[in-house]
């Protein structure tokens, strides 16, 4: 059972209070983009064995969306952060680097 802290309302709750929303930081390309880019956005996934950035919604709480960084091999939650960003905050990335040296995930590491 995962334990997540909602960065919007500050509540720490069990996974049943939240709803998983899939891979985070997908880039939706605008008009004029290629079929490849649209395929990437809609279907292609990192699905890493390791560090994963993902979206969650605090459904049985404040109802807000947020982001989480988590390991898919240990289920450790490294931290959660606001939804209104295109990438995980620097301090969270540093925390992850201490625990998982050399991790990579799409364009950031």
């Amino acid at each position: 059972m995962l334990i997540l802290t909602c960065p919007c309302c500050g509540v720490t709750g069990e996974e049943t209070e939240f709803h998983a929303g899939g891979e985070a930081h997908l880039k939706r390309h605008g008009p004029g983009s290629t079929a490849d880019q649209f395929e990437e956005y809609l279907f292609m996934r990192e699905n890493p064995k390791g560090v994963h950035f993902e979206r969650w919604r605090h459904v049985y709480g404040c109802g807000k969306w947020f982001h989480a960084a988590r390991s898919t091999t240990t289920l450790e939650v490294y931290g959660t952060y606001a939804a209104q960003t295109h990438e995980p905050p620097k301090d969270l990335r540093d925390t992850i680097s201490k625990k998982v040296p050399g991790w990579t995930w799409r364009e950031f590491q």
């Binding site: 996974e15 709803h19 993902e54 898919t72 289920l75």
Partner: peptide
């Protein structure tokens, strides 16, 4: 509902 490689579920 979430990505997982641990062979254990919730």
């Amino acid at each position: 509902g979430y990505n997982n490689y641990t062979q254990r579920g919730s």
